[in-house]
Write a protein that binds this DNA or RNA. Structure first.
Length: 640
RNA sequence: GCCGGCGUAGCUCAAUUGGCAGAGCAGCUGACUUGUAAUCAGCAGGUUGCGGGUUCGAGUCCCAUCGCCGGCUCCA
């Protein structure tokens, strides 16, 4: 073999190796180590993810992908979805295939079937998949021309595939993948063979519209997941169970925090204990806003329809609004707080010296949501936004945005939340000129860059009046929730002819920021319930301590303790029932009360309390004053 | 709103091919006087989500409706 038929392969660690041209990636992996050959699912060649069967004709940078790599996992799951499609087609002949991608924790495939799948079908499909895996069929890629592809899928009656091909740009190279008698249109890449799949589980079946539009036919979607080890699947299933155990709807009922009843779908009732949590959050919110120069307002829930026409909500948000008539006039229930805040700004002229004006409002908004999307406190039809509108000079924009970013950061850290940032740009249904949108988007981007923060761009996901920065919180079991947003708005000031008097004595147009931190108090409470699994830090706990007398004889002393703690402002309960303490402790534990104070003869004699912490267990006896100080400090510092 | 599943006591769940609606926990009453996650006994608790229909007879079958759950879509 001549010298020029050698190629240079550079590995991620910087080492380069020489191989003959035409060598396959699998052969290279084998050459490096047999373990790598066993574990590699696909490879990245010059940044492109490809099959292990691909051959190299020239120098390349190569990285092998295993299940530890996000892209490796995607290949693994995507191949599983092909195996599922093969199984479904075998068991249900005539099943048409739509799409079957890998998703965050697994994969799905959308099918068009004569009869909807029932849960029992999943078990059958799963079994068939096992047979396919056992057969260890190789995934074989072949390139083909557009006319070939169209002819092939038309002949097979795969109308969705035909539609996909027709919608692909002319210059996209097409490929198909085969395993056994199954063929699918697919860009790939795929695993070397079906035998690489180990633990597969089909999770659920649900309806899903073709291409996500309710105008199209509803298909049958099967969700599943797969792992290279049984233990990894078990761990995944355990995480799902853990999420169920933390479900705020379940805990909300058990801890008596809130309820949602048939009489008000999507309209939550807050119970006394839920209100304590809520009021503590709001108290904290008010303190933090006061520190940062915010004023608080409250604006009406119902306002003239004309106002909503002026704001643009009538044109862009009507579908989500509730309307009503008062006497002969048309009114709307507010879905957002901004017009109200604007009316407060407009009540009198403002000097440039007053700006920025930071105006907060815990505003109750109502939005019509489709009945099928309601979900506990996470998705409701009325909720309280911890809103604020900042009216400022154009020159203050950057500083104010940074101020809000810093504030969000401070507040989230208090709860122990980490977060990701997203920048959302102009959506389809929006108002204002391109110049204004560009200006606003650049200002947000500039603030993020100045802070040196990482962010993802979310094209077309902004509000109808401006672009936004979104904060996605990560909870204790790794799920993310969108909470805070910062929206920059040059448009509402225009629509409402807002003004300030400048140094030159002339009227000028202020700029607005709309922002929330918790987002919705209701949703935030839902997130907190799941994040803490109901075991709130003492400052938020509806009941901070419970006194548990051992027998009736100790009740008078227990009442003294209760009174003393109550006078110190600690939320305390007492369990005077004639029960064994094991029983009372169990109940207090289930209620996730931070501190249980057991009192009997010893404690009454010494003026002490036997302290039990809900997670640390028995802490032993200590003088009442010592316990009180300790708890007060814990509450004050909001520690956990 | 759409697809699929599900609504039985406050909660968790039973009830054969259509044949007398039941249990545990919680609640109430009583006994026990208890030392760190469920003491014992008794009592009470229901127009089986609501409304129609089929049937000698419906928790069970059919229709309609409300709500819930998992998704789609949407979003704080």
């Amino acid at each position: 073999m001549s010298e020029n038929s050698k190629i240079k392969v550079t590995l991620p660690d910087g080492n380069a190796r020489e191989y003959p041209a035409g060598i396959s990636l699998m052969e290279i992996a084998k050459d490096i180590s047999s373990r790598l050959a066993r574990e590699a699912l696909a490879a990245k060649v010059d940044g492109q993810v490809v099959d292990m069967g691909r051959t190299l004709e020239g120098d390349a940078a190569v990285a092998f992908l295993t299940f530890d790599d996000e892209e490796g996992r995607q290949v693994y799951r995507h191949s599983t979805s092909h195996v599922m499609a093969q199984a479904a087609q075998k068991l249900f002949p005539g099943t048409k295939l739509a799409i079957g991608p890998a998703i965050a924790d697994g994969f799905y495939y959308d099918f068009d079937t004569r009869e909807p799948f029932v849960p029992e079908d999943l078990a059958r499909i799963e079994k068939e998949m096992e047979a396919i895996i056992k057969a260890d069929l190789p995934f074989e890629r072949s390139a083909l021309s557009r006319p070939e592809a169209l002819a092939m899928f038309k002949k097979a009656g795969q109308e969705y595939k035909v539609e996909l091909i027709e919608d692909l740009p002319e210059d996209v190279p097409l490929s198909i993948y085969r395993q056994g008698d199954f063929v699918d249109l697919c860009m790939g890449p795929h695993l070397p063979s079906t035998g690489r799949l180990k633990s597969v589980k089909l999770m659920s079946v649900a309806g899903a519209y073709w291409r996500g539009s309710e105008k199209n036919k509803m298909l049958q979607r099967i969700y599943g997941t797969s792992f290279p080890k049984r233990s990894m699947l078990d761990e995944h299933l355990f995480r799902i169970e853990e999420a169920k155990r933390r479900d705020h709807r379940k805990l909300g009922a058990e801890l008596d925090l809130f309820s949602i009843q048939d009489e008000g779908p999507g309209f939550p009732f807050f119970h006394p204990k839920g209100m304590i949590l809520r009021n503590e959050l709001e108290k904290y919110w008010r303190e933090e806003h006061k520190k940062r120069g915010y004023q608080e307002i409250r604006t009406p829930i119902i306002l003239s329809q004309q106002l909503w026409e002026q704001s643009g909500h009538w044109d862009h948000y009507r579908e989500n609004m509730y309307f009503t008539k008062i006497d002969e006039g048309d009114y709307a229930v507010k879905p957002m707080n901004c017009p109200g805040g604007i009316m407060v700004y407009k009540i009198r002229p403002h000097s440039y010296r007053e700006l920025p004006i930071r105006m907060g409002e815990l505003g109750l908004v109502h939005r019509h949501e489709l009945s099928g999307v309601l979900h506990g406190l996470m998705r409701v039809r009325c909720f309280t936004q911890d809103d604020a509108h900042i009216f400022m000079l154009p020159s203050q924009v950057k500083e104010e945005i940074i101020g809000v970013i810093d504030m969000e950061d401070d507040l989230y850290k208090m709860f122990g939340f980490d977060y990701n940032l997203e920048l959302s740009t102009r959506p389809e249904n929006s108002t204002g000129s391109d110049e204004i949108w560009e200006l606003a988007t650049d200002a947000l981007r500039d603030a993020l860059e100045t802070k040196g923060l990482k962010y993802k761009v979310n094209e077309g996901d902004g509000a109808f009046y401006g672009p936004k920065i979104d904060f996605h919180l990560k909870d204790s079991i790794g799920r993310t929730w969108q909470c805070g947003t910062i929206q920059l708005d040059f448009i509402m000031p225009e629509k409402f002819d807002l003004a300030y008097v400048g140094e030159d004595g002339q009227k000028h147009r202020p700029v607005m920021i709309h922002r929330v931190i918790f987002g919705s108090i209701e949703r935030f409470i839902g997130i907190l319930i799941e994040h803490f699994a109901g075991a709130f830090p003492a400052w938020l706990a509806p009941v901070q301590s419970i006194v548990i007398p051992i027998t009736e004889r100790h009740v008078p002393y227990a009442l003294e303790i209760e009174k003393s703690l109550d006078e110190k402002g600690i939320r305390v309960e007492i369990d005077t029932r004639n029960e064994k303490i094991g029983y009372k402790i169990r109940e207090a534990q289930n209620q996730k009360i931070p501190y249980m104070l057991v009192v009997g003869d010893k404690e009454a004699d010494q003026g002490s309390v036997a302290v039990r912490h809900r997670s640390q267990g028995d802490l032993g006896a200590m003088p009442l004053a010592e316990f009180t100080d300790k708890l007060l400090e814990e509450i004050k510092s909001k520690s956990y």
